[in-house]
Write a protein that binds this DNA or RNA. Structure first.
Lengths: 219, 219
DNA sequence: GTCTATATGGGGATAGAC
DNA sequence: GTCTATCCCCATATAGAC
């Protein structure tokens, strides 16, 4: 078997198993067995399990965030030319559509679960990877939201973005829960429906005025 | 040491470590060591690691869901007496406030991370535990939402509830992400602020009209 | 590049003394 | 109820033949 094939096969299989059973829950033995390669192959090709995990992430997260930024670029360019601010709904689409679109990818289910494991995981190395990969995206989108909704402070927009990310991550990670919730009524594998509904929900959430009870303070 | 103390101490320590490092990532050796009890104690008191995990969950999830249902009972009772439907915002509060209120609990951080591990976890035994504990809550709240918002189908309300749960779970599990997102501007430990903003966001999301997926494509 | 074999350590569970 | 000692399995990683 050619080295490239083994390398890729390992990434594919590891991705699937990490998504399903987590990192500690997936042994190199199972990965190499299912990949049809030798136990020692992971250490030969990646150096360690730790670095295999990193490569599994980098392969998928990079392109999605790149696509988000490309979409945002085009939106801002268009808005600039037309002499207006970008629209909220366009920005939400640029953030939400690329990851959800993964459902159409052959390994889509695994990739999406992996994304939300990345969001949830608290382990130091993984958290650093997260920050590396998302810092630019977060900054660019926060700026964009601020231009689209100048009535809200950076801090209020951060809260809203926080909630949006949660809604999206959960929709990506747990399509099964929706089946359970809806007692079979909803079809979580409908990509366009998921995107549209997520954007509808978050658009309203972003536009919602901030109620100001006792402790709601602005920055 | 009295048996009750060991039992409780094990639950406390296990809860903290499971929240931090996951289930596979937490060995009985570490748990018993940190609890200052013997390695064999877990098997004596709980029978197995598996059952320890279940008990750790049951101790926390039960009361929160009970509180949700109590609040919902009171809301529906009041609405019935006044001859009206329950209000959306009241229902959202009944669902969202009890778990977020855990932030005020001494072990609040751990409990909340644990909740979201329960939501994310795909392992069969854990998923079953989830369904056991949440089936009644989901059904009762879906009915309530349907009474408050009769213009939406059960299926549309399930989508909305799905997104709400994601936003809430993420806010509970990852307060740190909000600090990162907002570059320190937001204080995720402000309980009342979190509850109010979550309810604001989700209320708007629930009220959002549903656009037709086919015509909602963005440039 | 790939294989076998093995080093080394950690895991859950239990038997049996106290 | 608690302890020690131990069984047995599985983990990651590496050495060295092919």
């Amino acid at each position: 078997m050619k080295p490239f094939d083994t390398h890729t096969k390992l990434l594919d299989v590891a991705e699937k198993l990490f998504a399903k059973n987590g990192f500690k829950g997936t042994s190199l033995r199972v990965i190499t067995q299912e990949a049809g390669v030798n136990l020692a192959a992971v250490n030969y090709h990646f150096g360690s399990k730790e670095r295999l995990i990193r490569e599994v992430f980098r392969r998928r997260v990079g392109p999605v965030n790149q696509r988000r930024l490309e979409k945002l670029d085009r939106i801002e360019e268009k808005a600039n030319i037309e002499g207006r601010n970008p629209e909220l709904r366009e920005i939400l689409d640029a953030f939400i559509e690329p990851p959800i679109q993964l459902m159409n990818h052959p390994s889509g289910k695994a990739i999406m679960r992996l994304f939300s494991r990345l969001i949830i995981e608290s382990k130091k190395e993984i958290a650093e990877l997260f920050i590396d990969q998302f810092a630019e995206v977060v900054e660019r989108f926060l700026q964009a939201f601020h231009r689209a909704l100048p009535q809200f402070s950076q801090s209020e927009l951060s809260w809203k973005m926080h909630f949006m990310i949660g809604a999206m991550a959960h929709a990506m990670a747990e399509p099964f829960r929706l089946k359970f919730l809806s007692q079979g009524l909803c079809d979580p594998s409908d990509v366009q429906a998921t995107i549209t509904r997520l954007i509808d929900f978050c658009q309203a959430g972003f536009l919602a005025p901030v109620s100001n009870p006792d402790s709601a303070e602005e920055a």
